[in-house]
Design a protein around this nucleic acid. Structure first.
Lengths: 192, 192
DNA sequence: TTGATTGTCTAGCGGTGCTAGGATTCGAGT
DNA sequence: ACTCGAATCCTAGCACCGCTAGACAATCAA
């Protein structure tokens, strides 16, 4: 069975190559530039090979999104655990979130703007997505305030961050005052 | 000169027809279904006619966005003026905003998700966009709180609403608790 | 009536996501 | 060692996209 194992291994390597290349290309030139032809050329295989790994472009976007969700969870937890007070923890979380969105715009788009064919807020939501939300909940739940459901509070806080991230990046908000906006959001929303 | 005037009038009518048809098609079947061919067929002209009115598809999206911005400003002002207390005014504004986004998803996308080639938060930002922001500012400025710039506060509040609107519509947030989220947002952000 | 200008259409370019079907490679069984 | 069958991959092509060149028809000015 060693031959089959080797083949399976090689297939897995190639699949990771596809996802990594798609992500790289998207970060370099935007998702519009990620066409199946260009992607196939970059991995040095023909187009149909992509379809032996994924149902279509949408699933490739979804794979990048899952990868990004895992990284975002790590980044958020790292920032939160480095802070001492609840106030600082929430502020650090917010900055880490916005920082991730700014530094990985294509991944952020794959997660929250584009259709990656993923289920959200449901039974069959993939684990990395649930975990990313859990990472937010861990730090935000403790500042929800009395009588407020921690999940609901996390949703609202998250939505606010998401709004800041997308509007800023789309040029709808001038980027100079990001820090002030974060401060305002943290001071008002979090109950300390 | 009457002939030229008639022609100019007819051109303007056709231009409005294009925008209205694009909007209608987008609301019915999504922006992906708004192709230049389908749009041309619906208005009963050939494709190149579209390009005698707009530089390309992007500009058509932009035209829908401007139309939507004007309507949104009206909706927001109407909701705000119908409320008595500052608290109720802000809550009504928030509900009107989210309601507009939910009832006109394609227009909302044209405004804030898609690239309509419009400038935001700048000198040459089109008047309807500035005015829509002004409509928010009118009601939100009075609850910014001491020492907080009304413009900055409006930006943050708007971003939060935008986050709720987009995440809810994309299936990222379960829609059941929208009202609770609005209540939380208003209670925490607004200083009464 | 003629000539020029304006308006519109047909046809086509290079690109997209995706797939059918043929060619090739490669391991398994005798 | 050699054939056979299955797995693998690629060429070629479909229908569609946004956009445009150039032919044609309608309209107006002289």
């Amino acid at each position: 069975m060693s031959v089959q194992e080797r083949k399976a291994r090689e297939r897995a390597v190639r699949e990771r190559l596809i996802v990594a290349t798609a992500r790289e290309l998207a970060e370099q030139q935007g998702w519009d530039a990620v066409t199946t032809r260009r992607l196939a050329e970059r991995i040095e295989y023909s187009q149909p090979v992509l379809y032996s790994h994924f149902r279509g472009k949408r699933e490739i976007i979804g794979a990048v999104a899952l990868e990004g969700a895992a990284e975002m969870a790590v980044a958020v937890r790292a920032a939160a655990s480095a802070a001492n007070s609840p106030r600082e923890r929430v502020a650090a979380l917010a900055r880490a979130y916005l920082d991730f969105a700014e530094r990985n715009p294509a991944v952020y788009d794959a997660l929250f703007q584009l259709d990656g064919g993923l289920a959200y807020a449901q039974e069959d939501t993939p684990e990395p997505l649930k975990d990313a939300f859990a990472a937010l909940l861990e730090s935000l739940g403790e500042v929800a305030g009395d009588g407020v459901d921690p999940g609901l509070f996390t949703e609202v806080f998250w939505a606010s961050l998401h709004g800041l991230a997308t509007l800023t990046r789309a040029g709808r908000l001038p980027p100079e005052y990001t820090e002030q906006r974060v401060e305002l959001l943290v001071d008002r929303l979090a109950v300390l």
